[in-house]
């Protein structure tokens, strides 16, 4: 309710707690990615599994990384496709 009122009165962006939250959100994306390099490799393996259902990909050339500037963090994946699977009729 208070959150709503704050937003209503346009305080949402001005309040220092929102600045704190936003800074934390960014810093934690970086921290968490650093703490676990395993995270990326485990993500990579999961990606391969899912995408292989749809196409044949070059697993060795697959690249996954977190790109960041001070505004945002993006997950960037470069996945070379070798061959598409024939689409089975979708039931």
């Amino acid at each position: 309710m208070l959150d709503f009122l704050n937003r209503f009165f346009g305080r949402e962006t001005a309040s220092s707690k929102n600045v704190a939250k936003e800074r934390l959100r960014l810093v934690l994306v970086h921290d968490r990615a650093n703490v676990s390099p395993e995270l990326l490799s485990s993500l990579k393996n999961d990606l391969i599994k899912v995408i292989s259902n749809y196409m044949e990909i070059d697993e060795k050339a697959l690249e996954v990384s977190l790109d960041s500037n001070d505004q945002q963090v993006a997950l960037v994946a470069n996945i070379p496709v070798k061959r598409m699977k024939r689409t089975k009729s979708l039931a």
Partner: peptide, 13 residues
């Protein structure tokens, strides 16, 4: 008054 993170904020993070 919006100057400290709330319980919900902390839970979310």
């Amino acid at each position: 008054r919006g100057d400290m993170m709330s319980i919900d904020d902390m839970n979310e993070i």
